[in-house]
Design a protein around this nucleic acid. Structure first.
Length: 588
RNA sequence: GGGGCCGUAGUUCAGAUGGUUAGAACGCCGGCCUGUCACGCCGGAGGUCGCGGGUUCGACCCCCGUCGGCCCCGCCA
């Protein structure tokens, strides 16, 4: 019978136990050997004494790191002064009487649980070793608890966990699909789902009023620290609901999770921000509200500016926007400002104007000599600038000015460490436009997806000026990361048709792509809506990690390669032939 | 598709302006050690300097290409 390390207590002193696990550390003192034994529950120190049992002592001499062993011995209190406060079991130890080496280990390619960052590629290649480290182990335990808490909450709320297909139909809208050739239907392909969007809506038509699923999604796009080709969503859909119902369900869900997993009491309801405000004040549709550096609009102040830069921007229909960096005039050297200029240019800025606020309250340096006294007073008021601050300006199309300052804001906050640690700011962003104009495709496209319901108040203007219509959709933002989003869906086939018209999607095209959904909606579809959350991102933020790879057991590199399994890899010609496909080049 | 940083021992790194034997720490191997817990001490082994070309009397170092890693832009409805 085997006992786990964490289950051996001070009160067990004198009792005999058998522990099984890995040798985490090995300290040979000649006539006395210590090992730190690790199992899934924790760590226990084991002592081998030459005088206690000659045979087991001899075996213990052969032990190396990460050997798997079985140890039988009695629990003893550690001699006074040798307790280890770092360990939960630091007041006791096992005096070994028998040891069996169950399995030896090769010398490790890297040391487990070291402070030094081992090359991530090596860690991924030997992922099973990295998984033995406390950090990754704790992350995956947390992930399991998170999923469990979500399921318990939604189950209690009457939701049903229903699985949807992985082999499904390619929908060229949205992200690039992973395709799966069909052997039985030559020349035809399945696609792995980007999300179960269409199926969950059909489940609503099928009468399951509350659905959820913790489900893998696939998108064949380039990777980032927060983007893997396969990732996990918490997918939710409900019938007979409005925005506020989905939002309050979400808030209760997060409140429950934060409380049970982190012991944090969230204030409800979450803050709500309009999309327009998010863009105008934070320069982003996923604002990080943990710090200031808010974007001010100065267009009104400078409409009669003596400076061509500002005057022209406004007469061309653009805007003057600014952020004020508190205390920046002392922190930033001229070189730093030049560097910021080059960074702003990388962001798409034409330049970066600036003024310092001197100790006497005057504007100094940069473009200050072009700013009149009256303009100065208004600038100070609008930006909230104080003596010792520095103000950065953008004169450009409003969208560009917001975007540049929004990114500059994040850059400054990171570089000068303005972001408070251990704080979670949850925020709804609502009132997204329903459509936007795609320069690339030269047509109107959906901001969310084509099944998103227009806001009721904008049904009228849908035909006259579709680009100004808002949608019944909502994004959930945590610390400047989009962690979820959803919408109320269109359940009326007539309205759906109108949307397709605006998107210039013909009836034939719509039938070809989403026919099965349109059919379903025509047979008495209930009003419905839902939301989906990026579980990997949420876990990354809650665990204070910089990449979702650290909360995924087996992630891929930025080239979408798995060093552990060597996937993707070439396949036999026979396999390709069977599928009725041919490779166009053999560069593999 | 593009930009930035990086690739030297098993691991993390150091190697001025090109110069003959490429170093350190940890790990590994051998020895000593009865209260350690990142044990300590003594000794030792270990390198195609990512790969391929080029320049040079001579390349870890310079040039070109290529492969790979990380971050970012584009992309991700």
């Amino acid at each position: 019978m085997r006992t786990l390390c964490e289950n051996v207590k001070d009160s067990d002193i004198g009792k005999e136990f058998t522990l099984k696990g890995w040798v985490m550390r090995y300290r040979d003192h000649g006539g006395l050997i210590f090992i730190d034994l690790r199992d899934c529950s924790g760590i226990m120190q084991v002592v081998f004494d030459e005088n206690l049992d000659k045979e087991s002592f001899k075996t213990a001499k052969k032990i190396k790191n990460e050997y798997v062993v079985s140890i039988t011995g009695t629990v003893g209190k550690r001699p006074e002064g040798t307790e280890n406060a770092e360990l939960k079991t630091g007041t006791i130890e096992i005096s070994a009487m028998r040891i069996q080496i169950i399995n030896a280990s090769e010398t490790l390619p890297f040391q487990i649980d070291e402070e030094a960052d081992v090359n991530e590629f090596t860690r991924l290649k030997y992922r099973y070793l990295d998984l033995r480290s406390k950090r990754l182990k704790d992350n995956l335990i947390f992930r399991s608890k998170f999923n469990h808490a979500v399921r318990r909450f939604l189950d209690d709320e009457g939701f049903l966990d229903i699985e949807t297909p992985f082999l499904t139909k390619s929908t060229p809208e949205g992200s690039r699909d992973f395709l799966v050739p069909s052997r039985l239907n030559r020349g035809h392909f399945f696609a792995l789902p980007q999300s179960p969007q269409l199926f969950k809506q059909i489940l609503m038509v099928g009468g399951f009023e509350k659905y959820y699923q913790i489900v893998r999604c696939f998108r064949d796009e380039d990777l980032r620290a927060d983007r893997q080709p396969e990732f996990t969503q918490l997918d939710i859909e409900m019938s007979f609901v409005e925005m506020k119902d989905i939002m309050s369900l979400t808030e209760e869900l997060f409140k429950t999770i934060f409380k049970s997993l982190l012991g944090i009491e969230l204030d409800l309801p979450f803050k709500i921000m309009d999309y327009d405000d998010a863009m105008n004040i934070y320069g982003s549709d996923k604002p990080d509200t943990r710090f200031g550096l808010l974007i001010a609009s100065l267009s009104n102040i400078f409409c009669n500016s003596s400076m061509n830069l500002f005057k022209n921007a406004i007469s061309n229909g653009g805007a003057i926007k600014a952020i004020c960096f508190q205390g920046g005039s002392n922190i930033l050297s001229r070189k730093d400002i030049d560097e910021l200029l080059s960074i702003a240019k990388d962001f798409g800025a034409k330049g970066l104007a600036w003024t310092k606020v001197a100790d006497n309250g005057a504007l100094e340096g940069g473009i200050s000599k072009f700013i009149s006294e009256n303009e100065k007073i208004s600038v100070i008021e609008k930006t909230g600038a104080k003596n010792g601050d520095i103000i950065f300006y953008q004169a450009d199309e409003k969208k560009t000015a917001n975007m540049v300052l929004g990114r500059l804001r994040l850059y400054l906050a990171k570089k000068y460490k303005l972001i408070p640690k251990n704080r979670f700011e949850l925020l709804w962003v609502v009132d997204f436009p329903l459509f936007e104009y795609s320069e690339e495709e030269k047509k109107t496209v959906s901001v969310h997806h084509p099944f998103t319901a227009p806001a009721e108040k904008d049904l009228e203007i849908l035909e006259l000026n579709p680009l100004s219509a808002k949608s019944d959709s909502y994004d959930l933002v945590l610390n400047g990361e989009e962690i979820g989003g959803g919408s109320i869906r269109i359940h009326n086939p007539k309205l759906q048709g109108k949307i397709f018209d605006i998107l210039a999607i013909s009836r034939e095209e719509a039938r070809l792509k989403f026919g099965f959904l349109l059919d379903a909606l025509s047979f008495g579809a209930p009003p419905h809506g839902g939301i989906a959350f990026g579980i990997d991102r949420i876990l990354m933020l809650l665990r204070n990690e910089n990449s979702i790879r650290d909360v995924i057991a087996f992630p891929k590199t930025q080239k979408a390669y798995c060093p552990l399994s060597d996937a993707p890899s070439a396949v036999k010609d026979k396999q390709i032939k069977e599928l009725g496909i041919r490779l166009s080049d053999t560069r593999i």
